[in-house]
Amino acid sequence: MTGVPLSAYLVLALVLFCIGLYGALTKRNAVIVLISIELMLNAANINLVAFSKFGVTPSITGQVFSLFTITIAAAEAAVGLAILMSLYRNRKTVNVDEMEMMKN
């Protein structure tokens, strides 16, 4: 169990973040974009938990923070989905590139 080094966690988090970023910037469906954002948040969580064990002064703080992040991510997802619902009712679409009312 001692074989997993810090860099492995960080690489996992990096890969996860990049996938999330790629999804958030390229996918047209707003639901997928929201899911991608969740991915990015979780990548950050992995970092936090990893550093709480391997950091300069290991402590519980990182895990506490990640719990906060999860809570906020849940709230964010709820709000985001609510906005998405009302947008869908108004515009009959969930495509991000069609939501351009703020243009120019």
Binding site: L25, T26, V96, D97, M99, E100, M102, K103, N104
Partner: peptide, 17 residues
């Protein structure tokens, strides 16, 4: 400046990134 403002939120994100 207003040409840059496309309303495409993903473009904004890309530029920010």
């Amino acid at each position: 400046g207003s040409k840059l403002q496309t309303g495409q939120v993903q473009q904004y994100g890309m530029i920010a990134f």
